[in-house]
């Protein structure tokens, strides 16, 4: 029942990342290497599939956890770790690395699955999720898990920390970029908007936030619990450059990240329309799968569905 691991891909990926790191002569001066060896969309879709399978298997094994909001963020996290970010799985604390803060920390499974696939730690670790003593805590813990940039889980705090990292990058004249993933329910928190104001105020062109806009939180759809619309306009009015994309379409996501990179002196918000539970028919748009693990039978039927890559379309 174990999800297939793409060990081969991980090897390729790790080598590529190292080459990137060494290939840049004066990496310490933080010259951003352009023209990174690109990963094909096909490859990304294959990784996304593996990541989805991991999410199902690991939450199923744990008997608890948050599959819905993990599945909605698969393409976002996969784009970042496998195509957008400058990082080195063999050197998680590399000072010039791009930083990723999973502000919606309950989606830890998607981060763990992608980090394992990228080579930060053995894929076998995934099976220990949420067990006593495990390096993979229910919510991300920066001191236990290689590749986890910041400890999160209490919603609304991650973007502020990302702002701090972006400010440090500015101070240190380092060209690393900072990415934060937030939820739509999480956007209810006032602190998100405090961070939004600060990022624009300090002209943080090195900061990119992604809104995993799956439309659902715990008590129901955003529309019923707490409306956040017009959310793109809100971010615009806060001074951010806003790009709206289908959050399951790699082309659109990569394009948005590239756009963000070219924006100087202004933070970018990528509003990614997604489907909660994406890829597993009985989980898609089901509020209850926010924080409910699949049963043994559900794991099996989910894995049957997740046997070939899916393409795009987060439009609701």
């Amino acid at each position: 029942m174990r999800a297939q691991s793409s060990a081969a891909f991980r090897a390729v990926c790790a080598k590529r990342l190292v080459k990137r790191k060494n290939g840049s002569a004066d990496i310490d001066k933080n010259k951003r290497t352009s023209g990174l060896p690109s990963v094909s969309i096909d490859e990304l879709e294959r990784i996304a599939l593996t990541v989805r399978r991991h999410i199902i298997v690991m939450t199923g094994k744990a008997g608890s956890g948050h599959p819905g909001g993990s599945l909605s963020a698969v393409e976002i996290v996969t784009s970042l770790l496998f195509a957008v970010m400058r990082h080195d799985p063999t050197d998680p604390r590399w000072p010039a690395r791009d930083r990723l803060v999973l502000s919606k920390g309950h989606a830890a499974p998607v981060l763990y699955a992608a980090l394992a696939e990228a080579g930060y730690f053995p894929v076998e670790w995934l099976e220990s999720l949420r067990k006593l003593g495990s390096p993979l805590q229910g919510h991300p813990d920066m001191h236990r898990t290689p590749g986890v940039e910041m400890s999160t889980g209490s919603l609304g705090q991650g973007l502020s920390m990302a702002v701090g990292m972006a400010l440090a990058g500015m101070l240190d004249k380092s060209d690393y970029r900072v990415f934060a993933i937030i939820g739509d329910g999480e956007s209810d928190e006032g602190q998100i908007w405090e961070a939004a104001m600060a990022a624009a105020h300090y002209r943080l062109g090195n900061l990119v936030a992604v809104l995993d806009y799956n439309g659902l939180q715990i008590d129901g759809p955003n529309k019923q619990v707490m409306s956040i619309e017009p959310v793109a306009d809100k971010w615009r009015s806060f001074g951010w450059h806003v790009v709206e994309v289908d959050g399951h379409d790699f082309r659109q996501l990569l394009d948005a990240f590239a756009q963000a990179e070219s924006k100087k002196g202004q933070p970018t918000m990528i509003v990614a329309r997604t489907v909660k539970g994406k890829g597993v028919s009985f989980m898609e748009n089901v509020v209850d799968f926010h924080g409910k693990a699949p049963t043994v039978e559900q794991v099996e039927s989910a894995l049957r569905e997740l046997s070939s890559p899916i393409t795009g379309n987060g439009a609701r």
Partner: peptide, 28 residues
């Protein structure tokens, strides 16, 4: 946004007019 866990949803179901969900915004 935790009424199913705190069990206030029982009150919310019977008295929707006297139940207010703040969303994920505890301070508010």
């Amino acid at each position: 946004d935790l009424s199913k866990s705190t069990m206030t949803k029982l009150f919310a179901e019977e008295f929707p007019d006297r139940f207010f969900d703040a969303g994920v915004a505890e301070q508010n």
